[in-house]
Design a protein around this nucleic acid. Structure first.
Length: 299
DNA sequence: CACTCGTGGAT
DNA sequence: TATCCAAGAGT
């Protein structure tokens, strides 16, 4: 029997993660065989800064109600905001609606497969463009989200946490780690992300369940603590974000336009409430009517 | 590049 | 109970 030398380190890395994914991948609807590129795009936008558990029911509703980009494009943008419910960051709903309009008008109603065309869609940045090109179309792209950055930082670089912002070095590393063949690269992309989401988590990583434990640079280095600056927590109480959320919640729940008096009930400080309402109007999330009332955008 | 932009479950 | 933080994008 020939003594095959150890697989090259990169092949070993790929095999460990891909084998783990084959056994532990979650059964999510946007990964199902019958998924569409539109379904993948909707899932990626909904999942921006939002947990899977909260996205699931909204994704099912959206795809049932608007199964194609043209279906959503035909609806009023305010209906997208309303159906967004409490996923948070409601501008994403507006941008997804705008993306649907662009897909209908500029791409024949089909989600484009090219990374550059995806990137040009509203609400689609570097991550989402790569994710859709990879997950929906099986292309070879470096898909770099917070999960991937964390896995790379620990398993490869040996750091407890990635830098505050995505660096050129991280991007280069992600490209260097990509398997050569597109189908494998696509599975690798989703597999690394899944590993970061389920095992190599931010708070308390489950290293005992990790396929990379024996070769994790961070573990081998003795799990050094994070040395960079601590990420500053996001304030919430009393912020404009809280006020905007309250104002929009009232408008989402209302079947008819709402008066300024009714909106005043959700926040006592006139100055801040007015500023936030103006901001929502400027963002296109709220439409002011001639009679002084407000509603979700109808056009 | 630092900052803004929601929400609610987990710890 | 307070803090953390979850598949980012746009400015």
């Amino acid at each position: 029997m020939s003594t095959t030398p150890d697989a090259a380190p990169l092949d070993d890395l790929h095999a460990r993660v891909l084998d783990w994914y084959a056994d532990h991948a979650r059964d999510l609807p946007w990964r199902a065989p019958d998924r569409t590129p539109w379904g993948v795009l909707v899932s990626e936008v909904m999942l921006q800064q939002t947990p899977v558990a909260r996205v699931l029911p909204r994704w099912l509703e959206w795809l049932d109600r608007w199964p194609t980009p043209s279906d959503l494009a035909a609806a009023a943008p305010g209906e997208a905001v309303r159906a967004w419910d409490r996923l948070g960051y409601p501008r994403r709903a507006l941008r997804l609606h705008a993306a649907a309009v662009a897909i209908r008008d500029e791409h024949g109603g089909q989600v484009p497969a090219e990374h550059a065309q995806l990137l040009a869609l509203p609400g689609v940045g570097a991550y989402t463009a790569a994710a859709v090109a990879s997950f929906a179309f099986g292309q070879r792209h470096a898909v770099v989200d917070t999960n991937v950055r964390r896995v790379h930082a620990r398993a490869v670089t040996g750091a407890a946490e990635p830098a505050t912002a995505l660096t050129a070095a991280e991007q280069r590393l992600a490209v260097a780690l990509l398997p050569a063949e597109a189908p494998t690269a696509a599975r690798w992309a989703v597999a690394v992300m899944e590993l970061g989401a389920l095992v190599c988590t931010a708070r308390s990583p489950r290293c005992g369940d990790c396929p990379l434990l024996e070769r994790c640079a961070w573990v081998l280095a003795g799990r050094p603590a994070h040395d960079g600056p601590a990420r500053r927590g996001q304030a919430w109480a009393g912020t404009d974000r809280q006020v905007r959320g309250k104002l929009l919640a009232v408008l989402r729940a209302a079947a008819d336009p709402v008066s300024a008096t009714e909106l005043a009930a959700c926040w006592p400080e006139d100055r801040q409430r007015a500023r936030c309402l103006d901001g929502l109007v400027a963002d296109g999330l709220v439409e002011p009517l001639d009679d002084g009332r407000y509603c979700l955008p109808r056009t």
